[in-house]
Amino acid sequence: MENLIANFNYVIVVILMMIGLWSMLAQKNLIKKCIGMAILQTGIILFFISIGAKNNALIPILTEAAYSDPDVATVANPLTQILMLTAIVVGVATLGVGLGLAQKIYHQHSSFDEDEILENQRK
């Protein structure tokens, strides 16, 4: 139990990734699939931010007093943060591509429903 609470972030990461993956595989609606993809992605981002967090640490912006000799233990890890910062912006761009594809499909088949689209294609 102690271990579970200490690693609660990681449990939530796994749950979010499970929700996102389930939605991408099982949901029939294309927009819901896109939202599931975004949720899977935020789960992974939460994972990276969690491994970069430090107890009792400040934000990764140095105060003027710490310019000459910053104390590593009191500053959060900047590396995982920048990796995720760019991942968020790339994520919204890929979400846009996914939505563009869904919109194009809708105008060909007038449906977001996967089964209906497949039926239409067989005709």
Binding site: I31, C34, I35, A38, T42, I45, I49, S50, G52, A53, K54, A57, L58, I59, P60, I61, A76, Q81, I82, M84, L85, I88, V89, G91, V92, L95, G96, L99, G100, A102, Q103
Partner: peptide, 26 residues
Amino acid sequence: MGAVDVAFTEAAVGAGVSTVFIVSTI
């Protein structure tokens, strides 16, 4: 968790722009 830049980006991108993208598709 101290990731202020990431939170800022998510507030602008995740909550702002990606919601607008979904709404304009719908």
